[in-house]
Amino acid sequence: MTRFLPWAALVAGLGILGTGSPYLLTLAATSALAIMVAIALNVSMGLGGSVNLGVGVFYGCGAYGAALLNTKQGYSLGASLVVAVAIAVVVSLIVGPLLLRTRSLYFAISTLALNGIFVDIVASNDDLGGELGIPGITRPGPLPFFGEDGDPGSLRTMYLLICVALVAVLAVFAAIRGHRVGRTLEAIREDELLCQSLGYTTLGYRVFAFTVTAGLAAVAGVFYAFVIQYVNPGPFSFLTSSFQAFVIVAVGGAARTWGPILAGIVLVAGPSFLEFSATTNQYVYGGVLLAIVIFLPGGLAAGVDRLARGGAATTSSLRRTLARLKHTRESEGELS
């Protein structure tokens, strides 16, 4: 039963926020989107171990795709979701195998470059809105039980849909993490050479993780376009999107299901609800980030775990198995 407790808490928390003012709803919705992008990143960075600093590209693909489809072709939210996510997945399948030839920091830098190229293209191309962006995205009508009067402008409806998407994206992450594929990804993260020698096509798994990240980030992007009703290059630059997602994953605890939620609350939702000045906000952001990364190497999720277990640190069974396997292989190597 206890494994459903966090889910219940999440749904309850989102529900309570849903009764707030339009201002509160907008803050909650944008925080939820930032967390969603981080959960997406957690697949390739947390499980797969590839530090991807270009998740903003796919977040942007979703948002720009939805904005163009809605304003130019009149696509609804649902249709845009399908088409824009498909575009992001195709893009990731093209660039993924190329970029994933590089490793560790080289991969991080090449994805960073990808983000730079994306922002430069959308900012320079007038068909994509240029610096001014694309305004005038129409939200879907309010849900039947709200009625036109109960939800003017459909903000509450959008918030509710974003909450559903957040829970769904988190469930996808939890499912992958628990599945054989997720375990293989974690093994590749720990020792790629060992996995190759066991017969796994590691590049295939890494491309899979990269693509899942792209698809889930694009989902967040589509909802961004429909809730804000305006897209411009700013929110998809490295500093505001990819950097933020990377920090949320690192602070929450890589590969941990609840890490991005915890870190998102501490780093994104908390400061915006407390309404500091912009400068104070930056100090708090940088300071909290440094403090957690230095003193809690496993992230907030590991910290919460340790509290729950009364202070004892845990070693994952995966690490122990890998160490044993490696040891066996090495001693076999000595014999032959």
Binding site: M45, V51, S104, L105, A108, F243, F246, V247, A250, V251, A254, T279, Q282, Y283, Y285, G286, G287, L289, L290, V293, I294, P297
Partner: peptide
């Protein structure tokens, strides 16, 4: 610590330094 923790901390330093 793992490499990405160092990367995150250096970016934290960037944020604080630039704001200051």
């Amino acid at each position: 610590h793992p490499e990405w923790n160092l990367l995150a901390s250096s970016l934290g330093a960037v944020v604080i330094t630039q704001t200051a």
